[in-house]
Amino acid sequence: MTKLLTVSPARCIGCRTCEVACAFRHLEDGVPGRSRVQVRAVGRDVWVPLLCLQCEEAACVKACPVFALWRSSTTGAIDVQPERCVRCNACVPACPFGNMSVESADKAVIKCDVCGGDPACARFCPTRALEYIEV
């Protein structure tokens, strides 16, 4: 049984609750800029929450020279191992979707890890624009 974090932009109202929930869950300091989900405005009054798509053939994994990224056997998400990350930042531009970030306190890259199987963004999204569902 695989669970996926799905995005339905049509339901997003741009409240950015997901960003705050994510920032707090990851104990950074609650700064939304350090969130792993980013809400972007496209055109007028249209919002798209963006987060890691956990690609089958992930560019971040290929770009990493030290194998600090691998797929979790429990969640299926690609996890960063901060203790292995050498902070070369190659994965940041390599991700074709811009979902790797360096905005962490310890300079290691950060990305969505679906909160280990209980994504805070989906839990707090008031309109189910983000959902963690079985597929």
Partner: peptide, 21 residues
């Protein structure tokens, strides 16, 4: 893969998702 910065890649993804919605 290395020609766009993360911000612009993200903007491109937003547009693509929007277009497919």
């Amino acid at each position: 893969h290395f020609e766009l910065c993360d911000e612009c890649s993200r903007a491109r993804l937003a547009k693509t998702m929007f277009a497919h919605m």
